[in-house]
Design a protein around this nucleic acid. Structure first.
Lengths: 340, 340
DNA sequence: CTGAAAGCGCTTACAG
DNA sequence: CTGAAAGCGCTTACAG
């Protein structure tokens, strides 16, 4: 086996043909294992040997040119590492793309409009099959108009205009599931620490919480629901109020809020779940899995959003007439809920 | 402006030429704004208009073919979302690649050897300029031999054989910096909760800790150093032992250990930093930034590792003779250290 | 069974 | 100032 160094001239099909003493046509046929063409066993052997000897690798770019179809799919992300969420979307999209013989071109724009524009332009020049436009937290967007030049699907976001197909988490279902976890454990007085920032998560989860209560015949009480900063500080600051409500359980807007609440509770000598049952949201592994005690929560389906995004783009999945596909938020049970 | 739909035939330079009534040569010249060629103002205007009218986008793939140089750089990652770390590497590599007109092809292999092999093969077919082989935590590896077919640099890992250039965090410097934070605050009895798993982080940070003590004229005491599981559970379980040593401060192997320790301390009615000064490692934002009180720590330079990886690959940065470049781990001060 | 030739979308000497 | 032609690395009818 011969090794190629970085800048060395690439070995092409022509050279293989020369080495094997056949035409490039023949090389192409055996290299691609073309069915329906008969190649003499001797010729085949010779090209295979030549390929090996020369260390030939087909040039996928040239192939793309003649085939006329692009292997690329673009993924526009507004964040890739600031939270694990965006990463999961990328991972899902990548796995799905790869599985179907496509290659993901990811651009991290940090939400910068100009960077987005340039990334789209670049993707278009590489003749992507389509573009996934994603946001790290579920929200509405007005996507760049240049996206109209190619097929695009919105991932973890949606446009009010409804110009594009979108795939988003089922927030209502998630909120319901969070509350149900508590209801099924026998709780009746369940608080909800919602977020201060307007978002589909805020609206949807509240709606899910109401529906779960209603289905269980529990009356909704406004005093059990309030908004807090959606992080540890917000949870920490909510302890006093929570305790005052006499609730035995609480749904937190996310795992970080739950973490802050844990701290505040512990400082008061209270413990989870004995004194308070807690359910989070997001399933942010590094937090939820390692709190004391580990936190029961509802997971956001980022990986699946990514997968669904490319499947839809490739026409593999059906899309409802309204162009909106919702992915379920599954419940993750750990040990922060006391069964009454 | 005309819009193209997904499957529609692409508009090519030939069509633009036709529309503008010039040759493709001329189109190429004006589209690329070729210097040194004079184009009649009228011709130029006509092609620009045609480009606009037709919505022409150059085919970067075809261009690549004739230019003979590849815009692609491969990044092999063993994880992309299980921790924020890998994501930062990807982000750094992506930013640097983009900045220099290159495109990052990232493959997430989850460390699976077969997947790695296929990804490399794919990258080679797309004629990548080179490949970055990365791991989410710093360690030694024996990279796939097929990597020898292209330029490769190891990111956040290294091979004992020394076949490849590598870029890794300066663990010794990081360990020293952690200890120094405490020493400068006046602490003399400083514990170190190291990790049970053998790794450059374990060896290097311990070494750095020793050097910092030595430089400050503090004698190293074996009883102040022990190993624990490198996560919340390990930190939680270390509280008793830590308290028994009479240390006034502690360096934790990472932020998760610190988080577990916080919990255990709080359960004993103790508080940070009044009763114990704590320094973490990793600067895992979601944890370190939001503990009560926020945790002083030492950051792992993942973003920079990614940047350096592509810069080295592109020949933009010098590499020491031993092929090993170390990136500094900066100290991040928050409020978990009491000044004596 | 095998190969010459045209063509994918571009760029670049080379001639006018 | 402008264009015909060759060529980048491949594939695919079409002839032998």
């Amino acid at each position: 086996m011969r090794m190629e160094v970085g800048g060395e001239p690439r070995v092409t099909m022509k050279q293989v043909a020369l080495e094997a003493g056949v035409s490039v046509t023949t090389v192409s046929h055996v290299v691609n294992n073309k069915r329906g063409v008969r190649i003499g066993p001797d010729a085949r052997r010779r090209v295979l040997e030549a390929v090996d000897r020369l260390g030939y690798r087909t040039n996928a770019l040239a192939k793309t040119l003649v085939k006329g179809s692009s292997p690329f799919i673009g993924l526009l992300s507004d964040s890739i590492a600031s939270t694990p969420f965006a990463g999961q979307i990328v991972r899902g999209a990548q796995d799905a793309a790869w599985q179907h013989g496509h290659i993901l071109l990811v651009a991290n724009t940090e939400g910068n409009a100009e960077a987005e524009e340039r990334a789209i332009s670049m993707m278009l020049q590489y003749k992507v099959r389509g573009i996934l436009f994603s946001r790290w937290y579920h929200r509405d967007v007005t996507p760049p108009t240049s996206l109209r030049e190619t097929s695009t699907v919105l991932v973890n976001c949606y446009d009010d205009a409804g110009d594009h197909t979108c795939v988003v988490p089922d927030e209502v279902g998630g909120g319901r599931r969070a509350a149900q976890t508590l209801i099924r454990a026998g709780h009746r007085r369940i608080a909800l620490i919602n977020t201060t920032s307007p978002s589909p998560a805020r609206t949807g989860r509240l709606e899910g919480y109401r529906r779960a209560l209603e289905a269980a015949g529990i009356v909704f009480r406004q005093e059990l629901v309030w908004d807090a900063q959606p992080d540890q500080e917000g949870g920490y600051a909510s302890a006093e109020r929570l305790l005052a409500t006499g609730a035995t359980a609480v749904c937190c807007h996310n795992d970080r809020v739950a973490m802050g609440l844990y701290d505040a509770l512990r400082e008061r000598g209270l413990s989870v779940p004995t004194d308070m049952s807690v359910v989070g949201f997001d399933n942010q592994e590094v937090i939820a899995g390692h709190l004391h005690p580990p936190l029961s929560t509802v997971a956001l389906p980022h990986y699946k959003l990514g997968v669904a995004g490319v499947r839809i783009l490739l026409g593999l999945d059906d899309v409802p007439a309204d162009g909106r596909v919702e992915i379920e938020c599954p419940s993750v049970v750990r040990s922060s809920v006391l069964t009454l």
